[in-house]
Design a protein around this nucleic acid. Structure first.
Ligand SMILES: [Zn+2]
Ligand SMILES: [Zn+2]
Ligand SMILES: [Zn+2]
Ligand SMILES: [Zn+2]
Lengths: 130, 130
DNA sequence: AAATTATCGCAACATTGTTGCGATTGTGTA
DNA sequence: TACACAATCGCAACAATGTTGCGATAATTT
């Protein structure tokens, strides 16, 4: 296990996550970083943060990929079993930490991870009467 | 509403779906079609089939996008609320028509669609002791 | 301060999906 | 069956997103 370093770019990316209430795409992160580093670097930082369970990855139904900070890094077993909401209007993706689906699986399957994404209108867009 | 036509390419794509037990990516469809038509044509056929509710789209956690035939075209209200299973070993994605999650949402959200994907090992890979 | 090596920047490449437009073909109508 | 018209196609060109290799840089350790 090689040691992961605290570089200026990584710190900057973490600050962006800290400031954001919603999940962020690679492109959104790049814009907020204002060319502080190369796009490839951002990809590699995201890889490391995913690997260290500091962020988690969310693939949306429309094919976009976003990342969000984990709020449960302290847990011994690190599972992302919460739901995500994807707004079809503002395209923001938010973690619904308290929404966890229950379901019954057929035997013969070994489930290791779940991905539960709901889409529609977020409270903000619902209020502005779209 | 413009009429959709039955072209040879569209028929061929439908046959590929008919033969497959699992969901298919654009690339997989292209390989099976054996250059019967252009890649762009396949994209456009998939768009039409999605629009006509003949197939549905499945975005996997790893970012890949696949399509599968709908088994409920007869229903008045056409909703895809079933779960999908994504095998981390063989990368096959299958519809779990009978698995439907139950959940409790906070108010203020208007949910229109859900996307529930489970991943792990499929029965086939589980038996071969990976 | 020097050594080690994780990380970075850059260029080049791969994959996936989109768009415009002239050519082709499916389908309803005469 | 022949014709007209619009849906569909092929091709080229482009855009977005993600990956890889490698020499240069910089964060840690000693
Ligand atoms: Zn919204
Ligand atoms: Zn989340
Ligand atoms: Zn499998
Ligand atoms: Zn399905």
């Amino acid at each position: 296990m090689k040691a992961t370093r605290n570089t200026t770019a990584k710190t900057a990316v973490l600050e962006v996550f800290e400031k954001s209430k919603t999940a962020l795409s690679h492109t959104e992160i790049q814009k907020q970083l204002n060319d502080i580093c190369d796009r490839v670097t951002i990809y590699r930082i995201l890889d490391r943060l995913l690997n260290d369970d500091i962020i988690h990855k969310i693939s949306n139904q429309d094919g976009t990929v976003k990342y969000a900070k984990c709020n449960h890094s302290h847990q011994r077993v690190h599972i992302h079993n919460h739901a995500h909401f994807s707004c079809e209007n503002c395209h923001e993706i938010t973690c619904l930490e308290n929404v966890k689906p229950s379901y019954i699986m057929p035997h013969n399957y070994k489930v290791k991870e779940i991905n539960f994404t709901l889409s529609g209108l977020c409270p903000k867009c619902l209020n502005s009467n779209i």
